[in-house]
Nucleic acid binder design. Structure first.
Length: 861
DNA sequence: AGAGGCAATTTTTTT
DNA sequence: AATTGCCTCT
């Protein structure tokens, strides 16, 4: 952070274009200078224009929130294409798939007027770090075959739950108590090590205390487990790609030959591995021009907990001598009051380069801060706010142009907070979408199907194999499976290979062996017995998924279950499986081989195309505009990829979806999402809920000033998403994990400009703790008189007094009323004391299990 | 072998 | 409130 303050003076925001002392490197771009001459420069500020036109040499764009960052990157890409740089030499790395999709769209929109619009952008690499690495590994992993702890190109990507499953198994095998060694915590320790480019050996070498030494042992086994399953975790994608580019001259040379222009978005959130990776792609030591352009904003760094390293952006100029720094300080998104609010808040961060956010826009209303009674009240306040906006009235009572639902968004610190808002919107009939794209793939039935697909693509994948070997039942029980595992490990073969010997394994029953054999031949049929697919198996991806769904008996399994239980829940499982088939079909439809660095044409092929054309036209290859390439050249490579390749690509996509990817701005619905997912987006109206101590800032951030500042940046990100209207709310009481607790308004609220927001206290608090005015609001928990017993004790106390009150006379068959779900009948009773529950079939709301201690149930009649 | 009951735990954010 | 894991019963 030392360099931070030193740098401040040089890169002041908003004071024209400031550059570093070093002059821009060699050949300045030969592009039209007058902005009016070129549609790509039209409407840009001076700074933006510099960022777009300084295409050669290292460039750092310090882009404040709402300063037109995406605009700059897309125009820059279009500019490169216009200069005749082949699309396949250009790479742009983004944070989410959605951002890359959007960028691709916007670039092609900029090129739409060209007669060759359909071809000129073909082969552009716009991707996330993780997706890029996944593809490079598919393509080049074979080059390092046989290296210790290396993977085969048909590897599987393990998500967090697969990772936890593996860790849990290892922790158990090492005979460690899972209570002391939570897979989750161990996983993040390992992840931190990987983000620091430390493998198991390096970590073990540095481990000093018992804790670290134990982690080292687990790490070692974990790595071995992943490699045995030919699997990688998210961090490995980056880590192994770094290894690939370092250890394989061929891979590195191809990569460095191919990509000559690199752009990295959200640079403040890149971690150490990503940094190293980018230098390897750029190839700083090869005498090749370092055409790298990083775009980011230190004030929006919100992934420190995931290893994001702010010094990547702070030290850019030191890494790339001669770098041009372009500050973009003018905000084009928000009204002045919203911007003032954000700016005042973020100035409370000490570790930060000074900069001014400014706008030339005038007018705009003050953001609202509303203190609510509880979370339900809070949700209703948000609903009313949105309703007003939709009808063209703000909370200030002024008339505005009516907003649509899609113009509004609710942000919260953690996913649990969405529920109440969701309920409120649903009851009011307001359409909403929750940005939780990953949730679908976490569902039991979907994970089952994915596990089948994964085993088909990579039979070594043990976690997936274990998941489905007996689902639906093939009479393969726990005992047989344990024997199988022993057999496999004693011979050093994979579980799948062991399955082939099922009948010879001691201790495996005839019945179980039969099931195992059937399982193996099924997989063999799907993937052509590893011989490999694409040659022996034909058809479309959707057909394959369909076939697997049928042959495996998985669909039948869930259909039967739904028929038996009659539960809506179970019926939707069948729908979800069908949904997977159509998503596979969609994927197949959209998949573009040319834009996939994993399967598309090689650098040599790309270059050969150019050279052939150059010869034909009697030109220097460097003078060839890619757009001149005959359509046929492009068509040629557009042959159908083999089915196996398609399956891998599909699984890869499924593994790398992010929550934010699902947001569809056209959906016509209110968007609900976490503050993290909101990064990079904007909405005319925003409501931020749950501004309370322990929530935002989060409880865990109390530990360090750094974490507190990151929380503040998170609030800053939220505020700066709002274009015209902003409401920030807190609830005085909030029920979390079944306990209603008194809260303290977020300290950040006090950091908002005194006269820059309109505060409305609707908490309706009548007890002594109510502060007389905002200024005298208590500073900390200590200023409140509150129940100091620990939560377990409070819970116990609660359980003694309340549960029986309404539960009297409650037995199966009795009619009851619930304030929210209406009337229903008791279907079952279970548990005692605090845990006494009743399953109730509500007339309208369906079946629910309620804890009597908390449910406000009333016996009817 | 598998379903279902019951108790304990839950401490963010996510590629 | 919701999830997970262990235990028991069929």
């Amino acid at each position: 952070m030392q360099s931070l303050s030193a740098r401040v003076e040089r890169t002041t925001y908003g004071v024209g274009v400031s550059m570093t002392s070093n002059p821009p490197t060699t050949n300045a771009p030969s592009i039209p200078v007058s902005p009016e001459d070129d549609p790509l420069l039209r409407g840009l500020t001076d700074q933006q224009r510099v960022a777009v036109t300084t295409t050669e040499g290292p460039v750092l764009v310090l882009a404040a929130a709402g300063s037109g960052k995406t605009r700059v990157i897309t125009r820059r890409v279009a500019m490169l294409l216009q200069m005749g740089i082949p699309a396949w030499q250009i790479m742009a790395l983004t944070f989410t798939n959605k951002a890359s999709g959007e960028m691709r769209e916007r670039v092609s929109a900029l090129l739409r007027h060209r007669p060759d619009a359909d071809r000129v952008g073909r082969g552009l690499t716009i991707s996330t770090f993780h997706a890029l690495c996944a593809r490079l590994l598919r393509r080049y992993a074979g080059l390092l075959e046989g290296q210790p702890s290396w993977i085969k190109p048909d590897y599987t990507i393990y998500d967090m739950s697969d990772q936890n499953a593996l860790l849990k198994k290892i922790i158990k095998d090492l005979e460690l108590a899972s209570s002391n060694w939570a897979p989750r915590a161990v996983g993040s320790a390992i992840s931190a090590a990987k983000n620091d480019l430390k493998d198991a050996r390096a970590y073990a070498a540095e481990a000093s205390d018992f804790y670290e030494k134990t982690i080292a042992r687990i790490y070692d086994k974990y790595e071995a487990g992943l490699r045995a399953a030919n699997a990688v975790d998210f961090d490995d994608l980056l880590l192994l790609t770094v290894r690939l580019l370092r250890e394989s001259d061929e891979a590195r040379e191809e990569v460095q030959q191919r990509w000559r222009y690199l752009m990295i978005d959200e640079y403040q959130d890149t971690n150490h591995v990503q940094f190293v990776l980018s230098t390897l792609i750029v190839g700083t030591d090869e005498g090749k021009p370092t055409n790298v352009c990083a775009v980011g904003d230190p004030d929006q760094s919100i992934y420190g907990w995931r290893g994001a390293d702010i010094s990547n952006i702070m030290d850019f100029e030191r890494t790339y001598p001669g770098a041009v720094t372009v500050p973009l300080g003018q905000n084009f998104r928000s009204t002045a009051p919203i911007l003032h609010c954000a700016d005042t808040l973020i100035r409370n961060n000490q570790q930060r380069p000074h900069k001014d956010l400014f706008t030339t826009a005038e007018g705009g209303e003050l953001p609202l801060v509303v203190h609510c009674r509880d979370e339900r009240h809070e949700a209703s306040v948000v609903l009313e706010y949105f309703r007003g906006l939709r009808e063209g009235t703000t909370a200030h009572g002024t008339d505005i142009e009516e907003l649509a639902w899609k113009d509004m968004a609710v942000f919260y610190r953690n996913n649990a907070l969405s529920r109440v808002v969701e309920d409120e919107l649903r009851n009011a009939g307001v359409p909403y979408v929750i940005a939780r794209g990953t949730a679908f793939y976490q569902r039991e039935e979907v994970k089952d199907l994915i596990a089948y697909l994964r085993v088909t693509a990579n039979p070594a994948d043990e976690v997936s194999l274990q998941r489905v070997i007996n689902k639906p039942s093939r009479k393969v029980g726990k005992t047989s499976l344990t024997r199988l595992e022993m057999y496999a490990s004693s011979r050093g073969i994979t579980l799948f290979e062991a399955l082939r010997d099922a009948h010879e394994i001691e201790g495996v029953s005839k019945m179980a062996a039969g099931g195992m054999t059937r399982f193996v031949s099924m997989i063999d049929e799907w993937n052509g017995a590893g011989s490999f697919m694409g040659t022996s198996v034909s058809g479309s991806l959707a057909q394959l998924v369909e076939r697997i769904l049928e042959d495996s008996g998985l669909e039948k399994h869930y259909v039967t279950m739904a028929a038996k239980s009659q539960r809506e829940d179970d019926e939707s499982k069948v729908d979800n499986l069908r949904e997977m088939v159509s998503s596979a079909a969609d994927f197949e439809e959209e998949f573009d081989l040319d834009n996939d660095p994993g399967m598309g044409p090689s650098v040599d092929e790309l270059r050969a195309q150019r050279e052939a054309l150059a010869r034909a036209l009697d030109l220097d290859p460097d003078d060839i505009d890619d757009a001149d390439l005959p359509a046929a050249a492009s068509q040629e490579t557009k042959k159908d990829p083999p089915l196996l390749g398609l399956l891998r690509a599909y699984l890869e996509r499924v593994s790398l979806v992010a929550d934010a990817d699902q947001v569809d701005p056209q959906s016509g619905a209110v968007t609900l999402m976490t503050l993290h997912a909101a990064k990079g987006l904007e909405f005319p109206a925003v409501a931020m809920v749950g501004l309370e101590e322990g929530l935002l800032p989060s409880m865990r951030s109390f530990e360090s000033a750094e974490n507190q500042e990151e929380e503040r940046r998170l609030a800053f990100v939220g505020i700066t998403r709002a274009m015209d209207h902003l409401m920030i709310t807190s609830a005085r009481y909030r029920t979390m994990r079944g306990l209603r607790e008194r809260t303290i308004p977020s300290s950040f609220l006090k950091e908002l400009p005194e006269d820059g927001v309109l505060v409305s206290d609707q908490a309706g608090d009548d007890d002594l703790m109510r502060p007389r005015n905002r200024r005298e609001e208590p500073e900390a928990w200590d200023d409140y008189e509150f129940d100091q017993r620990d939560p377990a004790e409070r819970r116990a106390k609660r359980s003694q007094g309340e549960p029986s009150k309404h539960a009297d006379g409650l037995e199966v068959g009795v009619s009851v009323r619930h304030p929210q779900f209406g009337t229903g009948t008791v279907a079952a009773l279970s548990g005692y004391g605090v845990n006494r529950r009743a399953r109730i079939d509500f007339d309208d709301a369906g079946a629910k299990t309620l804890i009597l201690a908390y449910a406000r149930l009333e016996v009817v009649g």
